[in-house]
Write a protein that binds this DNA or RNA. Structure first.
Lengths: 113, 113
DNA sequence: ATATTAATTCAAGAATTATTGAAATGAAAG
DNA sequence: CTTTCATTTCAATAATTCTTGAATTAATAT
């Protein structure tokens, strides 16, 4: 993953309502939730929730599937995990293990925690 | 960390030049880099680099310190790690271990990778 | 004091993103 | 086939973020 793609993905997460959506879908697990329930859970209008869901879907964080009249959304854990890996490998791991000789005070809480 | 704070931090990372800055500072390690060298490394004008550095500093991802005429910047690994933790605990871990009984197909590449 | 180097701040305009409510789509039921 | 329900799409506006270059602050040396 390069900086351009990662920047787009971070942009998709740079909104509190979209983070609420992801948290709700993570709690819901593989069963997912339909758009209306997501909207009421995060306290947004249907069209606003739809807008946020479209942004998350374009970034690949969620996938959707029609179930009768409703549209079911669920989180793509692999996609979220890919971004976590980017942050860990290019930021934390890089600082700890790259460059030959990491200095004494270059601690890395990503690995420790 | 709540959604509002996390959204602000993700916003600070939602720009390719700012990600380049972080990558450069991670490579530089605890020695850090001064603003001018960062600007030329990422191919940005001094004022644009300064703008991006201010955004990263406000988010707490970088800290700065004057060294004679230059301003030295270095990455705060704890801060980056805190955001990684948010993604892992609230998104991946949540999906894998919360809610009592995670279903069979609820795999989590965040833990596997 | 003046000049030089390093970096930031500011203001103005450009570009992107967010928000709202109304209209449109798609599926199911009467 | 018309109605109803669920959700999206659209258009207009509002708000935020980005970009550029000129002016400003800060430290050092002459």
């Amino acid at each position: 993953m390069d900086e351009v793609e990662a920047a787009i993905l971070f942009g998709a997460l740079s909104n509190k309502d979209r983070l609420k959506v992801i948290r709700a879908l993570v709690e819901a697990g593989p069963a997912g939730m339909n758009a209306g329930d997501i909207a009421s859970k995060i306290g947004a209008s249907p069209s606003r929730a739809s807008f946020h869901l479209a942004a998350l879907a374009e970034a690949g964080f969620v996938v959707r599937q029609r179930q009768s009249r409703s549209l079911n959304y669920r989180v793509d854990f692999d996609r979220v995990g890919g971004l976590v890996s980017f942050l860990m490998e290019d930021c934390c791991m890089g600082g700890c293990s790259q460059g030959g000789k990491p200095a004494d005070n270059n601690r890395c809480s990503c690995k420790a925690t």
